[in-house]
Amino acid sequence: MELFAVICIQTSHYVSFSKWGGGKDAQWVFFDSMADREGGEKGFNIPQVSVCEELQSCFSDELVETEIKNKTNKELKERLRRFICDGYFCFYNIPDDEMFG
């Protein structure tokens, strides 16, 4: 199975990480429905989607060694910390070749 999306919650603020594209060209993107605010308190939220550079080599030995190992949660980069610590729902895909192979 292949992880393709994670919904994270911190207090009452949800964000998500999703894979965009396929194969080795796939990129992780970050979605935040409350990234910016227009019109003050009674205004509206402006959602934002951006490439999440912190997860491009997700779960690689290099990422673990350089970004995660021996660090506290507070020392992690913000998006990486959200992904690791605030994960609430994880979505997996079964590639076609694994399902019928």
Rank of each mutant, 00 (worst) to 15 (best):
E54D: 11
C90T: 07
Q48F: 03
S57R: 07
V29N: 06
C8G: 03
S12D: 14
I68T: 06
P47N: 13
E67G: 00
G39M: 13
E67T: 04
C8D: 03
V49M: 09
V29D: 01
S33K: 14
D25W: 08
K19Q: 08
K74T: 09
S57I: 05
M99S: 12
S57M: 06
I9G: 04
G23S: 10
D32G: 05
W28V: 01
P47M: 05
S18T: 07
F83C: 01
A35R: 13
V64N: 13
S33D: 10
Q27H: 00
R82C: 09
G22H: 06
D86E: 14
L76K: 10
L76W: 11
E65C: 01
D97Y: 08
R81E: 06
L80R: 15
F100K: 14
H13I: 04
C85G: 00
G40E: 07
Q10V: 07
Q10Y: 06
F89Y: 11
G101R: 12
V6N: 04
I46C: 05
S50D: 09
V29M: 08
H13S: 00
R79Q: 15
R37K: 10
G87L: 00
F44M: 05
F4L: 02
F89H: 15
M34C: 02
V51M: 13
Y92H: 12
F31R: 10
I94A: 10
E2V: 07
F89V: 15
V49T: 14
G40M: 04
N93Y: 07
S12W: 10
G43C: 05
N70W: 06
I84Q: 15
R81T: 02
F31H: 12
F4N: 14
S57Y: 04
S12G: 12
I84P: 05
Y14G: 01
E65V: 01
R81K: 11
F17K: 03
F83S: 01
D32W: 07
G39Q: 04
D32R: 14
D36P: 02
V51F: 04
F31T: 08
E53D: 14
R79D: 04
L3T: 13
G22S: 12
I84D: 12
Q48A: 15
F30P: 01
D32V: 03
F17R: 02
T11Q: 14
F17H: 06
R82L: 09
G43V: 05
E38S: 06
P47I: 03
G40L: 14
A5W: 02
D25S: 08
E75V: 01
A35N: 06
K71Y: 10
